[in-house]
Design a protein around this nucleic acid. Sequence first.
DNA 1: CTGGTTTCTTCGCAGTAAGAACGAAGTCTT
DNA 2: AAGACTTCGTTCTTACTGCGAAGAAACCAG
Lengths: 408, 408
Amino acid sequence: MRVGTAVTTVDAAGMRAQNSSLLLNMIWRERQISRAEIARRTELSPSTVSAIVVDLERSGLVRSIGAGVSRGGRRPTLIGFCDDAFSLIGVELGATHVTAALTDLRGRVRAYRHASHAVREDPKGTLQKVRELVHAVLDAERVPRRSVAGMGVAVPSPVHPSTPGKLSPLLVPAWRDYDVQESLRSAFGLPVFVDNDANLGALSECYWGAGVNGEDLAYIKLATGIGSGHIIHGDVYRGAGGTAGEISHMAVDSSGPQCVCGLRGCLVTLIGSAALLERARELMGRKDKRTLTVRELVEGARAGEPAARQVIDGLGHYLGIAVAGLLNLLNPAIVVLGGEISSVGDLLLDPLRASVRKRALSTSMAETRIVTSALGDRAIAVGAATLVLQAALRDRTLFPLQHLGKSA
Amino acid sequence: MRVGTAVTTVDAAGMRAQNSSLLLNMIWRERQISRAEIARRTELSPSTVSAIVVDLERSGLVRSIGAGVSRGGRRPTLIGFCDDAFSLIGVELGATHVTAALTDLRGRVRAYRHASHAVREDPKGTLQKVRELVHAVLDAERVPRRSVAGMGVAVPSPVHPSTPGKLSPLLVPAWRDYDVQESLRSAFGLPVFVDNDANLGALSECYWGAGVNGEDLAYIKLATGIGSGHIIHGDVYRGAGGTAGEISHMAVDSSGPQCVCGLRGCLVTLIGSAALLERARELMGRKDKRTLTVRELVEGARAGEPAARQVIDGLGHYLGIAVAGLLNLLNPAIVVLGGEISSVGDLLLDPLRASVRKRALSTSMAETRIVTSALGDRAIAVGAATLVLQAALRDRTLFPLQHLGKSA
DNA sequence: CTGGTTTCTTCGCAGTAAGAACGAAGTCTT
DNA sequence: AAGACTTCGTTCTTACTGCGAAGAAACCAG
């Protein structure tokens, strides 16, 4: 039985590593902070704080950035985090596209590439495409391989904790013989982290979006399928088999339409992109016209088109049933809606909140904020890069050694 | 932003505390293990292991229990955990009853008391009753106050993390001015831990029941209301506001009966005890007879009564919808059903599993076991005591100092 | 009985954080 | 403007921890 206890043994070096991480995290969070303030907050002794800061300075992760305001005595030296000390790579594999982003340690995108590709059907070509895009973003900013801490990859499939590189053979059968993590690790010689796209959307929101200060966050990705990602105690929650958050086939209306999965009224048959566009076409009465896109639906709703508004209202209604269940079950501090359709903002939030209010415990509802994402279409790729950042802030050794010369 | 990193600073004493906890946990888990084996598994040096074991022996938590089998050389001395070193108190507050259990450090009940009481309406009398029952179980085993590590209390209400002693003013308004934790702490001078009953059922299963070896576990309590508790990474998950797992009003059938909450087809209106008994009465055609009990329903189902079987089938059907949603959302390793009705076993599990299979992702379904509880009606009280055990195994200082004399 | 193995303890060593003392750099009062 | 007081950061000593080598004890095999 392994019942939630620290499983890590500690020696002197481990003690230093732990305190060092703690400081690194604090400096990263605060952006600038003095040694004295760190000592006060951590309750570490001033001498210890100084010693660790020297370490961190030597590795190039932090540096002095001038004096702060006095508190009645000598002015403190502010220590700042070096956002540019290392770069991160985030890759997003969608159903039909591949993107790569190069970010700094503050989640800022310094280079970005996008390409359409039949990801599901063509693993080999996809991996080749990824290599091209990653090289492109690295070259665009002339970033040496040495200063990259690692690579995160978002995949459109659940990821089993014990085989992080493998995609689900049921959902993406063509990838059966491919290992995303292994092939990219050997291609670039970098640490590679893989996770589900919705999970990384959640991580992105937790770090750079609406989830700031929130420990427990739920993210719902509205797209072809409906996926959710959950941050619990600041960490992505993956479940025992890595399929936590797969809510496409949650039943919300037993009298709804038949789904390919065999059930009636699955979330995806009611509010998946295909269903929404189909409904919009019906209401607009333009069956003959060429394919409608989500973008057009969003623009229509914003322009006040009744049909588009009606579709969004329906989305809010059904999504509310699922969100209410999620609130009662998980009680997150915040629910963030992502995916292109979420850009309609309040047009979606108003009916959604109304629907949720009717169904959720008033206490859990009162403590939960429901918002739409403000991070845009790069959120997933940035979330992938964030996975590396998160790991490296915990274990400094992930930041490659460099700057071996003494910085007087 | 506090993004899931160790928030604890470490010094030399903290290092020892952490390693000490690690060893204590291992000895507790293994029941008996040699120093050499501990050193191999933890990768701590033999000298360190010996030193810590001396510490633990001095505090009375472990002791030598003879020699083990040789691995080709000197026979190892086995160290065993002293299950009787301290006692734990677990209290359960139900809607209409109060129970108190005295357990050892292995979850064995050494004394148990039960009393009916109008808990919801009478806070003052309830607390008085708790004091009586606790004194009774202590006296029954002649346990001195000194050897009790603490008291856990299960309450029929969500518990907000920041105010653990307060019950929900919405669900239990009469308790507005009472603080369970504070009043019992001052009454007994012991550490008091409070949590929701379903959460503690989950904890109980994780330690003593079906969840052994499972880190992620979901427990569903089938009673007047439907509550669920979740163990995530070995810890009770409470959510941001403490209301995680309140699934009574999860919507599973939009064409179902009207619920007091305003919605149609809430779980509780379909499978709450009242609904099940009502349905059974209808099917049995004995509207005139006196009130049916859950016990009678269980016995009827076991005896093969068609009406009872049909009610259980319906329970399995609806519960399956909720469990499927839970699997897709949280993907636990195991789902445990508790509450009196769950004692029908396979009669419930068969239709439940069939219902779930139709709705859950096949991958998450494949990895999840669904079982009924085997712990009986004391599970919640024992879970409350387990809350203390869990805390004390992490932080040894919760075990009160005694045995100050040298044990040569 | 002898050589090899395993277990556990003892002792010196290295690494870490704590704490006291101190100089440096400001602020504030007079 | 001068001196007292406060805060900041460093240096040095001390205490504690875990590690590793060495050794004693206990056991097995031939």
